[in-house]
Design a protein around this nucleic acid. Structure first.
Lengths: 229, 229
DNA sequence: AGGAAAATCGAATTGTCATTCACTAATTTT
DNA sequence: AAAATTAGTGAATGACAATTCGATTTTCCT
């Protein structure tokens, strides 16, 4: 029986207790996110999640306080991913349109990645109020940042004049909806879908749109299309 | 106590038994649709629906077989509304882009109208299989019709060359997402939202897009914007 | 080694919910 | 006006699910 803490022997190959715990917790969040996205919050029982992890229900309570907190953590992670995409895009710079499109493209990748813990809220009014209001305020802030980008884009000439609020709703619809129809084992990869939707969005925001879009997401990158430029 | 069947006396003012039954059933469908859209299928109990109608749970079983059938009827009605919008647009004629945009605009109006019985499926895998496969096949047919319109539009020059499948997913995201954020008592009316999203969609599909979009949905119609032309 | 803390389990507990049942009142049919 | 049908109710019924509890095993610390 191997007992040592691993750190000294094989570097990080043999994880110590804290690492094991963190890994298990991460697996729980991933399993829960998959189930919630597939069946919805109310349509998923803790027993389902536990079974998918090979443990029993009570075991889950060692990692999260209850089902509500579980969803809260996932919604929080989703919004954190959104902000990360935003910061990354801002750091890369470029026109407001480039930054907006890069944000959404990266966010699509996040929510549809194989090991994502992102849950796009489909059922409303699920979280009770200590949680609910917190999530709503973070979400509103993110949407506000997107609107700001649209308005900057109108100002810097990279985005067609429009109503930023309505346009952001429209964009978020396209983006969030990908989680409904995207399939890991489908025709297109996660990256291809992200690039394809980004190309559509990019063209629709541009004051002087391209004459055509890619005939298929799998060929994006082979031609002039794409986010940049 | 008025006993007569109304038909002879006051025209149709006093409804007869069959009409009363139909009205009650319609009210049930409306109440259920509102609840399902607000809280999701699993988040809504038959008791909730019954209470909103001022009756008790068992009474509902006089009008629908069970909860599954209730959702099925609403999903079916939603798709029926989608096809109606499509047929209406086809009947009005015009370029493929005009017909596509008109379809989606009218569909947005349908799903967000005050007395709508439309439920856009948010939780997947809710209906069991006698129902599920039927809904999926109707939905697929509708999406196929939309893709046909996109391809016709590419052919007749009214729509920018693109991947029709990806574009239709993107459009349906924008359209269906309106049900998440639209509020009856909000700043914009149902018609304004439909026209506003339609304007965005129309521009994004056009090979030669307009130089600007409306600054606010409430001003659509006052300027050159809108669906036609 | 030996006690504390953590992880897990099987078995409650408690609540909710879809659905059914037995019964009553009204209404339609004959 | 009796018989049949329809609406509706309050009280079961039977699942299922979230959470808690007590016991057991494992792991960690010293």
């Amino acid at each position: 029986m191997v007992k040592g803490s691993g750190k000294q022997v094989w570097g990080n190959v043999i994880p110590d207790a804290a690492q094991v715990r963190a890994l298990k917790r991460a697996a729980l969040l991933r399993g829960a996110a998959q189930a919630f996205n597939k069946y919805g919050y109310h349509g998923t029982s803790l027993g389902d999640i536990a079974a998918s992890l090979g443990v029993t229900k009570p075991a889950l309570y060692h990692y999260v306080k209850n089902k509500q907190e579980l969803l809260f953590l996932l919604r929080e992670a989703t919004l954190a991913a959104a902000f990360e995409s935003l910061e990354l895009a801002e750091a890369r710079g470029g026109s407001a349109r480039e930054r907006l499109v890069a944000t959404l493209s990266d966010y699509i990748r996040s929510i549809n990645s194989e090991d994502s813990i992102c849950v796009v809220s489909m059922e409303e009014r699920v979280l009770k109020d200590p949680y609910e209001s917190q999530i709503i305020s973070i979400r509103d802030e993110f949407e506000g940042r997107l609107r700001d980008l649209v308005e900057q884009g109108i100002a810097d000439g990279s985005i067609v004049p429009c109503n930023s609020k309505l346009v952001v709703f429209s964009l978020l619809g396209s983006v969030n909806w990908t989680q409904r129809w995207f399939r890991q084992d489908g025709r297109w990869s996660n990256d291809q879908v992200a690039a394809g939707i980004a190309e559509i969005i990019n063209r629709s925001l541009s004051p002087t749109p391209a004459a055509r879009l890619s005939a298929d997401p799998s060929e994006i990158g082979k031609n002039q299309g794409g986010v940049g430029k």
